[in-house]
């Protein structure tokens, strides 16, 4: 194979992978919805919260960074809940007792809706790539920010994003 041909092949291959990876990395702009039952027994849909900034958190009790994130989300919710902000937790534990055992140990307790998705259909709808995945939606219901995994520094990012989206109409 000639040098120029080899070079073109390599460049094409590399470019393909960059593009393929970029499609995974890009924020989704689709407006998505789901229906779920909270642990309190209430049926909710994501679209019920149009007009509010929504932070959707996919988590599980067996996931260490998820366990680290949850108490931080409880604090975040208490700070912003009066200003048109809501957190919805979607838990995907196989057994709800593991989820409840973890939640019962938290202080203060989370006072935002938590859906137990026993069928694990909701994560597939939202193309979840890691645990936890935290998605922030604007007031129109459009996905604007997405975070994979969790480190404590992410809370500052969530704060900035919530403030930005709250100012929007």
């Amino acid at each position: 194979m000639g040098r120029i041909m080899k070079s073109k092949l390599v460049s094409f291959t590399l470019l393909s992978f960059i593009l393929a990876s970029a499609t995974f990395a890009a924020s989704k702009n689709n407006i998505k919805n789901f229906t779920g039952k909270t642990i309190q027994g209430k049926q909710i849909m994501l679209s019920d919260f149009k007009g509010k900034v929504v932070l959707l958190d996919f988590w599980a009790s067996w996931c260490y960074p998820c366990r680290k994130e949850m108490p931080q989300l409880v604090k975040l919710y208490r700070k912003h809940k009066k200003d048109g902000f809501i957190i919805i937790g979607v838990n995907i534990d196989d057994h709800s007792e593991n989820m409840k055992k973890f939640l019962n140990k938290l202080f203060p307790q989370p006072d935002f809706p938590i859906v137990w998705d026993s069928d694990k259909k909701i994560p597939a709808e939202f193309d979840i790539m890691s645990m936890p995945t935290t998605i922030v939606f604007d007031k129109t219901g459009k996905e604007r920010f997405r975070h994979n995994g969790f480190e404590l520094s992410y809370i500052k990012d969530y704060e900035k994003e919530i403030q930005t989206l709250k100012k929007e109409k």
Partner: peptide, 29 residues
């Protein structure tokens, strides 16, 4: 020309590598 092509390739490799850095991983507990 070869050196320029090699530099481009390494730059693209670096970008490719960085493009893989999109999904979360965690440090040891």
């Amino acid at each position: 020309a070869d050196a320029a092509v090699d530099k481009k390739k390494f730059l693209m490799l670096f970008i490719l590598f960085c493009s893989q850095l999109t999904f979360g991983q965690t440090l040891p507990q």
